[in-house]
């Protein structure tokens, strides 16, 4: 039940930090989401949403890191002997 879904912030409204909301697009389905726990969220950001609340702004640089890591692993695997190399 800790499921959280990524969506893109379309717009923001409200000044009260506890009730500030954004309309968030989840691949075509748009919902109003509370942004109290993501005060830094801005239009265009991707947020991770759990039970109606954004709990994080997704870090786009970190999001790509796994693929860079994969390339590294790929190169090392080519040199790996039958027992494997310690990457």
């Amino acid at each position: 039940m800790c499921l959280a879904v990524p969506g893109r912030v379309l717009d923001l409204s409200g000044d009260d930090p506890l009730t500030r909301v954004g309309r968030v697009d989840f691949g075509g389905v748009v919902q109003e989401i509370n942004l109290a726990f993501a005060p830094e969220a801005d239009v265009g950001d991707y947020v991770l949403v759990h039970v109606g609340f954004a709990i994080a702004v997704i870090d786009e640089v970190e999001a790509g890191r796994i693929f860079a890591h994969l390339d590294e692993i790929g190169e090392l695997a080519e040199f790996a002997g039958p027992l494997g190399a310690q990457p």
């Binding site: 959280a4 726990f37 005060p39 709990i55 994080a56 997704i58 870090d59 786009e60 970190e62 796994i66």
Partner: peptide, 18 residues
């Protein structure tokens, strides 16, 4: 931290405070 796109070492301070 494998999940750095959504996890910072200090976590979500606003959520922790509430």
């Amino acid at each position: 931290n494998q999940y750095a796109r959504a996890v910072s070492p200090g976590g979500n301070r606003a959520a922790q405070a509430l």
